[in-house]
Design a protein around this nucleic acid. Structure first.
Lengths: 159, 159
DNA sequence: CTAGAATGGACAACCTGATTGTCTATATGG
DNA sequence: CCATATAGACAATCAGGTTGTCCATTCTAG
């Protein structure tokens, strides 16, 4: 009985990207207000990869899906911004371990807190936590894998 | 009665991006099999902007959120790949209008068809067209705007 | 009608972020 | 103990984007 007009197939992917952008923009707007105006969308992924134990440039490159040189340059920038620092590994003189500074830990913690706040707002907007869970579940159903390993940077860009 | 464990706020955005990637990868895998191995994620946006009437480099740049020079370079590449061609505008000697070639129209049509096929598969995976509509509606609720104007390329990249 | 402003396009220089290739130093395992 | 693998540094290069400049054409006020 309903009108059952077909929706175009490109709507879903466009919406997915658009909502992602809106969310990330909102996150970084709030981060900027809380003392992290230099944080960029990619930094969260890097911080996550660095983790509490630190990481080497080579391993970071692997996780992010880029060359070790590219990972090294990213680390240099983050070092300049005061988010990470590099130190030698006493157990292996070849390795230089990248670790989060206090500032980096702060940025990571604030990101997590803001994401959780935002999640509450999304749930409210959708009319309840259940709806939000339903959304997340639907997305998991469509793409069950682990969404973490992101080499996404240049994936989109390549014209 | 349910366990009600809190989900982290970063799950949703990560899932959104991940599903987007999976969808776009699937699209381009099928496009490659159908004679368009050179099409890239960005091309769809460009084709859409070019449209049936053609467009100038300046206008394309505006729509894509990049400089006219960048838009011009993109057009050069698409021209080299045989997707578009440039011709003069008899009504305005300054303008050079970019138009889709037959090959470009074919690519655009196949993209639309594949997206629609994929949409059917997603609906089935989710357990029905209604579920898919619910997903799309939820995304619209979270970010109501027009998802089209995408300057997304370097938005993510900026380290 | 015409002079000045606005527009479309081309060209050049430069920046950034990535890539590959090469080199050295250090570990590791047969 | 030597051969191989690994971590990191350095250099050259590339791709995609930006700004700045210039010219041709069109539009618009006087």
């Amino acid at each position: 009985m309903s009108s059952e007009q077909a929706r175009p197939g490109f709507e879903l992917p466009l919406r997915l990207l658009f909502v992602f952008r809106v969310i990330i923009d909102e996150l970084h707007e709030r981060l900027a207000r809380e003392g992290h105006p230099d944080m960029r969308p990619m930094h969260g992924f890097v911080f996550q990869a660095v983790g509490p134990d630190g990481i080497t440039a080579v391993e970071l490159g692997r996780r992010l899906g880029v060359s070790k040189q590219a990972a090294g340059k990213t680390v240099e920038q983050l070092e300049r911004l005061g988010y990470v620092e590099r130190g030698g590994d006493p157990a292996d003189a070849r390795r230089k371990v990248v670790r989060l500074t206090a500032h980096g830990v702060d940025g990571l913690a604030r990101s997590a807190r803001i994401f959780d706040e935002l999640r509450g707002e999304w749930a409210e907007r959708l009319g309840g936590e259940e709806r939000l869970r339903g959304l997340e579940d639907a997305l998991r159903t469509l793409a069950p894998g682990n969404p973490f390993q992101l080499d996404t940077p240049r994936w989109l860009g390549s014209t």
